[in-house]
């Protein structure tokens, strides 16, 4: 009964909302034009990366905070009592992983570099790095992670800290995260590079601390 009622409500909602979407006026504010007009000052040649790290860089700052926060919760609740034995190694998988992992590292560096002018950037690069770590773990070549030591903690937090430090440093001169146009490209590259490493570690950690 409840099942039916909820399904009916959801269906009615979907139909009514789709009907509302079919006849919409043109938007009053033309943001793509505004982005286009300010691209030269952003220090980035690719519009999505420019929005992500410059125009709306503050969203990105908070979002890295969300990711780090999730990792802290995972660390706090991860069950540690079960002894971890390495999975039985499959030779084919191991060989493949040994070939793939360095290539993935290379791909991550490329994605980071490409982010400035075409699709790519720190998140994509970090995700590929994390995937390489997970692949190595699944192939039995890398152990699951235990409670992180000092070095790993610093690695996990470094990207966020650099981002915060840049934000705070720029605040002395102007607004929060207000990059001077001359420095914008270099500062964003610095943030992206450290973020790549930290995001890779965090995303890998979300898997490897749990497994």
């Amino acid at each position: 009964m409840k099942r039916f009622a909820v399904a009916l409500l959801a269906a009615l909602f979907a139909v009514a909302l789709i009907a509302a979407l079919l006849e919409l006026p043109a938007p009053a504010v033309d943001l793509p034009a505004a982005v286009g007009a300010k691209m030269a000052e952003s220090g980035i040649a690719h519009p999505v990366t420019a929005v992500l790290l410059n125009f709306r860089g503050y969203d990105t700052l908070l979002e890295i905070g969300v990711l780090l926060l999730a990792l802290i919760v995972v660390l706090a609740v991860a069950a540690r009592e079960e002894a971890k034995q390495p999975a039985v190694a499959d030779p084919v998988l191991q060989t493949l992983a040994r070939i793939a992992a360095p290539l993935m590292l290379l791909a991550a560096v490329y994605l980071l570099w490409a982010g400035a002018f075409r699709p790519g950037g720190a998140f994509q690069a970090g995700a590929v790095l994390a995937a390489a770590a997970v692949l190595l773990h699944l192939a039995g070549l890398a152990a699951a992670w235990q409670k992180p030591g000092k070095c790993l903690r610093i690695g996990l937090a470094a990207g966020f800290l650099v981002f915060l430090a840049v934000a705070a440093g720029l605040l002395v001169e102007g607004a929060l995260l207000q990059y001077p146009p001359a420095w914008a490209g270099a500062l964003i590259l610095l943030i992206e590079a450290t973020l790549t490493v930290s995001l890779g570690l965090i995303l890998a950690g979300l898997f490897l601390f749990l497994s």
Binding site: R56, D59, L62, V66, A76
Partner: peptide, 30 residues
């Protein structure tokens, strides 16, 4: 950040930050 934001999407990110931190605090006991 939520109290200070004047941007609906940014507010979404702050809502998630608050929500997930609160859930983490509840779960912390284990």
């Amino acid at each position: 950040a939520l109290f200070l934001s004047a941007d609906l999407f940014n507010l979404y990110v702050t809502l998630e930050l608050v929500g997930l931190a609160a859930v983490g605090l509840v779960a912390m006991g284990g």
